[in-house]
Design a protein around this nucleic acid. Structure first.
Lengths: 139, 139
DNA sequence: TATAATTAGTTAGGATTTCCCTAATTAAAT
DNA sequence: ATTTAATTAGGGAAATCCTAACTAATTATA
């Protein structure tokens, strides 16, 4: 049994490594190989909230407003984010992701998607069903 | 087919999330919830090299020797690492991981192991064989 | 064998960057 | 006139590196 577990370990390790290679690739495609985990986290927060203002992002991330201004300016320079003036209230700017910013924010999901594509390409429908059934049994 | 891929995605996402929760748990068990990716990387380098001196670690990580002294001192304070004087040459110290340091260095592997244990507990032998077969087909 | 040269690690001190802040300011809305 | 949203100015603290100078141990040499 221990042997089987080892085998499972090896197979899943390969899968996880493959996924993390994909996500590194996505980051380096965007030219952000040295982006920090924290920065990606902020981009995800921006991605997850639709109409996000500076004040709201400050509240959500528990930072001061100047900190957010600084952060957003940095993201704008990196071409991850742009500001959109509210049509209703001239004081307000919405923080929006660019294509690049969204790519980074969703790099983990996209990496998994790529791996799933590969899987779907190597297995037939019946095998995929079996795989899903097996993995659903676990949780 | 797209539907099946989505299903696969959901199942694997759950698996990956479960693994990353395990590794976060390991870090917080050790009291290092705010350890950096870089620091874990250095602990891994230490783990992977048997007889590792300060100079050698400086060469491997392309840092100056004082940087290594500083880094090792920090790790010693964190109880991740200890220094062992060489019996043959009084100038040399070997950098060794403590139990805690090794736990952190291998947190990813250990998290995967925990997930595998759970799998092995939920599937019978035949199912495990099927799972391995399917995943091996992919690469 | 005494001493000069070399090597391993440490100390002192500093440059740069990151990450966050408060207080004051500008512009728009109420 | 007051309130609110974002910005600007200025700065503190910590992280992350470095070079130069030093101590102690080893090795080479005359």
């Amino acid at each position: 049994m221990t042997e089987k577990k080892e085998h499972l370990f090896i197979v899943f390790e390969k899968l996880i490594k493959s996924k993390s290679e994909c996500s590194c690739e996505i980051l380096s495609e965007c030219g952000f190989s040295d982006i920090t985990v924290k920065q990606i986290g902020y981009l995800r927060v921006i991605d997850e909230h639709g109409e996000l203002t500076f004040s709201r992002l400050a509240r959500i991330t528990r930072n001061s407003k100047p900190t957010i201004t600084e952060m957003v300016n940095k993201f704008v320079k990196m071409d991850c984010v742009y500001k959109e003036k509210s049509p209703d209230d001239g004081r307000i700017y919405y923080i929006r992701l660019t294509e690049k910013g969204r790519k980074i924010a969703r790099s983990e999901e996209n990496a998994l998607l790529k791996v799933i594509e590969k899987m779907a390409g190597s297995l037939d429908e019946k095998e995929i069903d079996t795989l899903i059934d097996l993995l659903e049994k676990i949780w």
